[in-house]
Design a protein around this nucleic acid. Structure first.
Lengths: 190, 190
DNA sequence: TACAAATCGTCATAAACTGACAATATGGAT
DNA sequence: ATCCATATTGTCAGTTTATGACGATTTGTA
């Protein structure tokens, strides 16, 4: 039933990334992206709800992997151990896309509008992981704190890894979690 | 030299909050806000860079207080103690605005566009607090992790406090930090 | 082949912004 | 009191993003 279907979707994404890299996000119009992909401006908005969304949507696989890992972790594992385990299951996924992901990230960090959308995506992922932790019996309070702290460590590990790909992402991740533990190991709460 | 000056700015904010509460953010046009404030649509965009920004900008005082508290904290205090101290200096500021802040927050959480902008504001505040911690000699790695974890605790405390104003915000804040410490007090890092 | 359904193109339109220039009000100097 | 410099606003034209309606085209299937 589809005419071109999936191909148009990817052609639009490719055209957008190419034009964004060449002239920047703001200087690129949706009409230009559509023209380079060989479709109409109207078709762009049939595939993506808005202009910012075109660089996102590939996180579905990582999201599914993270949620699945949280759900199927050993029952007696402490919340942060569950998160570290989950993050370790997706670091190979990032390793494959390294080339493309770095190029995409360059464009995102160069545009305030895209950075804003990225924050929104991360927040949605945090919310999903939080409820996944709650399904394991972790209280809502502890779940939010654990996921936000864990995600901070994960993001720091990823950026440190892109800056220094010599060390493995897994090593960066373990170090970030160690830093997190060190921060809180100076006596009990006030 | 100014014609109306400050008053237009606040009139626009008041008109926007009123209309957003009545008909929602998406169903309210900038022209309607400007008309209710007695100015033109063009004047709106002279006071605010875009439509989402009109509900923000009041965080300047809190930001200054937080950064000042971080900078002037005792030199031998651990990073998270510095943050808890800083958060305690602003909880009275929130207590005053409680009425208005709750109304504003209702509108924000009801609109995806405004939630997105709020995330962006929080991220900017986190970045500023992180570099404030770095000025104290804390490493960039530890600073990011500490501020993100601390901000998670602070935000959780604020939402818990608005849901249950019987307990003081300070009590909620201390509890959230205690939760954070508890999360990481189950043996050393892996 | 013919039918059904999913895309896609075309057209019209609203709303969010932006630049240019004129009009007006305000504070101070003469 | 008058005039001048300056800040603010109004007006207008135009671009870009986003949406609805409707017809045309392609594809999978009976």
């Amino acid at each position: 039933m589809p005419r071109n279907g999936e191909k148009v979707h990817r052609r639009l994404q490719g055209a957008a990334l190419e034009l964004f890299r060449a002239h920047g996000y703001d200087q690129t119009t949706v009409a230009e992206i559509a023209a380079l992909a060989g479709v109409t401006e109207r078709t762009f908005f049939r595939h993506f709800p808005d202009k910012r969304e075109i660089l996102f949507g590939g996180e579905a696989a990582m999201r599914a992997a993270l949620l699945g890992a949280i759900a199927s972790a050993p029952a007696d594992l402490a919340p942060l151990r569950v998160l570290l385990l989950a993050f370790r299951t997706v670091d190979t996924m990032l390793d494959d896309n390294r080339q493309f992901a770095a190029s995409r990230q360059e464009v995102i960090t160069a545009s305030p509008a895209l950075r804003e959308r990225e924050l929104s995506k991360v927040a949605a992922l945090i919310a999903a992981m939080t409820s996944a932790l709650e399904q394991r019996g972790v209280s809502a309070r502890l779940a939010t704190l654990a996921v936000q702290a864990g995600m901070a460590a994960f993001n720091h590990a990823v950026t440190a890894w892109t800056a220094n790909p010599a060390r493995t992402l897994h090593a960066h991740l373990v170090e970030a979690f160690a830093d997190l533990y060190a921060l809180f190991s100076e006596g009990a709460s006030p």
